[in-house]
Design a protein around this nucleic acid. Sequence first.
DNA 1: TCCATGACGGCCT
DNA 2: AAGGCCGCCATGG
Length: 118
Amino acid sequence: MKIKRNFSEQVFSVVCLVPAGRLTTYGDVAAAMGSPRSARRVGYALSGLSSERIHEVPWHRVINIKGTISIRGSTGRGLQQRQRLENEGIFFDHMGRTNLGQYRWHYPNLVDLMGENF
DNA sequence: TCCATGACGGCCT
DNA sequence: AAGGCCGCCATGG
């Protein structure tokens, strides 16, 4: 848990910009924040999303660069992620891969858009 | 401090 | 195409 407050809050707001039916990657979120080498921190921040706020951030639209779901483990979130994405019309092949080329969301320049807060 | 652990990603085989 | 390495970076023991 406990990441620098600022960082995870930024992650959440950046993830909120991804429209339904589109995908982004941990690395893309990090790059959009100006920290291109912090992809792992993005995943860590999302893993710390509290159950209270889980419904206000579209965390399920963030996958890895290979086009697959990264979440492992027994919490059931991985399954939930796939289900939510399929509900938004995203197709997974029999290997659990999505077509990133088709669904990947390209962020606008966030500094231009939101000012120096980024 | 040192070491292991990730919801990562790029490179090389 | 798929898997192995390894660099990255914050955390926790």
